[in-house]
């Protein structure tokens, strides 16, 4: 059975470095970075460059997939059929923002979809997509998500909906996962598994 590990933490908590190191240590076959951020401005390009530089001199291959995460399946087959690839999917908060606001089929303001092909909620599409990837057993998966739930601020309704859907994804992925880790100051707090 392939393994699913969920990594969460606040902004700049060191969760990416932790997840990258974990994926590097785990991998026995292909090591694949699934990048979900689409470069739409200088700030995102800068962030992408920092993450890219960190992966220089590592075995990471990169797949860019801002939405429809299940479409990576044909590209993650391990070289050795007795082994599994290791995926690092970074990160769910970008994936959800892209699913809600970044695609032609959805309303860029509300994140609501008006295309019958995308009937399911954005959160459900991501949960189903990651489950589909896990079910192939082609890869062990490290998923990075984000902690944005405890500032007590009442944002606009679209943002509140985004936060609720992200919370739902985190709960569902945690239920599926073999391990759940919260990273604080670069240190892991183990919530499930080991």
């Amino acid at each position: 059975m392939s393994r699913l590990i969920l990594i969460s933490g606040a902004g700049a908590s060191g969760k990416s470095e932790y997840a990258e190191k974990l994926a590097v240590d785990m991998h026995e076959d292909r090591l694949i970075y699934v990048a979900t951020m689409s470069a739409y401005d200088d700030e995102s390009r800068k962030k992408i460059d920092i993450h890219k530089k960190r992966r220089i001199n590592t075995d990471f291959e990169t797949i860019e997939k801002p939405y429809d995460i299940e479409e990576i399946i044909p590209y993650i087959v391990p070289y050795d059929s007795n082994k599994r690839s290791t995926l690092l999917i970074e990160c769910i908060s970008n994936l959800l923002a892209n699913e809600m606001y970044g695609r032609a089929e959805t309303d860029g303001m509300t994140g609501i979809c008006n295309n019958s092909k995308l009937k399911a909620l954005p959160s459900q599409r991501i949960i189903d997509g990651i489950k589909a990837v896990a079910d192939t057993r082609l890869a062990d998966i490290v998923v990075v998500t984000n902690e944005v739930f405890a500032d007590g601020i009442e944002y606009d309704s679209s943002t509140m909906e985004y936060i609720r859907q992200l919370g739902r994804i985190n709960c569902e992925l945690a239920a599926m996962a073999d391990s759940v880790v919260e990273v604080m100051c670069g240190r892991p707090v183990i919530w499930k598994g080991q």
Binding site: E147, F149, A150, I163, R164, C171
Partner: peptide, 10 residues
Amino acid sequence: TGGMAQGKLD
């Protein structure tokens, strides 16, 4: 306790 949307009621 815990953040919003974390499944506290469930």
